[in-house]
Design a protein around this nucleic acid. Sequence first.
DNA 1: AGCTTTCCCTGATTGC
DNA 2: TGCAATCAGGGAAAGC
Length: 282
Amino acid sequence: MPELPEVETVRRVLAPQLAGRRIAAVQAPWPGVLARPAADPKMLAATVAGHAVTGMSRRGKFLALELDDGALLRLHLRMTGQLLLCPPSWPETPYTRLVLTLDDGSELRFADMRRFGRVWYLAPGEADIYSGVANLGPEPFDPALTAAYLRSALGARRVAIKSCLLDQSVVAGIGNIYSDEILFAVRIRPARPANTLTAAEWRRLSAEIPAHLTHQIEWSAISPADYLAGAGQDYRNTPHLQVYGHAGAVCPRCGKASLQRTVIAGRGSVFCPRCQKPARPR
DNA sequence: AGCTTTCCCTGATTGC
DNA sequence: TGCAATCAGGGAAAGC
């Protein structure tokens, strides 16, 4: 379940490997991976063949291959997507949905067991009204992501603060795992209605979001050699998380309460009932 | 308009 | 042992 840190890690590994490579061929073992507007594998192949990759960018949890004519291949890994750069000798990868064969014979494979991931081709200059990237809020590292911004965007909302952090139009890139981790770090209970947060809590939250994700990106760092040797194959960031996946365990901060699991916004959520207190009644 | 629920998918896990 | 029900969740869409 890649979130921003994992997606950024993939980008950092692959960007230098792909830069300058020319696309020789395109195949889509599962054409459904291609979303509008270029939903036809043959048309896509004819369109991008011969073009070079000039760079790779990230926005929220989206990645994009930038081509030398200004076109973009935007992609989202969703739950189980993997982006693998494979030497020609590599055996077939299970669940391969899209393959870009490069001019050195290597293959960039988009594998995705559960078929949630998508790829969008965008012609040079074409506005991306399809993928949802246009609706993203600021990056976590954007200076615009201040306490004042969060409070003005969310301060009147009655939904759980966790739902707000998962809302990509508020902040781009946070998913279920890091929303729990961030809220644990700032000692705010995930179910707290956003309109009950104090000024100090908005400040803690706005500071923690970039700090936490930066830390996780650094923690996730993986060498290109390892990634290309197969670590990208089952690459999941399973760092030493504080709360996610640890329901029932003793809280790593207070050492007293046991971590509780609940469901918020349809997602499993873990928190410490002692460290993350509910809103004070007013 | 704001918020909740459903849906898409399939492997792992749980229950009978 | 075997099969069915349940769970996991990013994000769009439908429902309330």
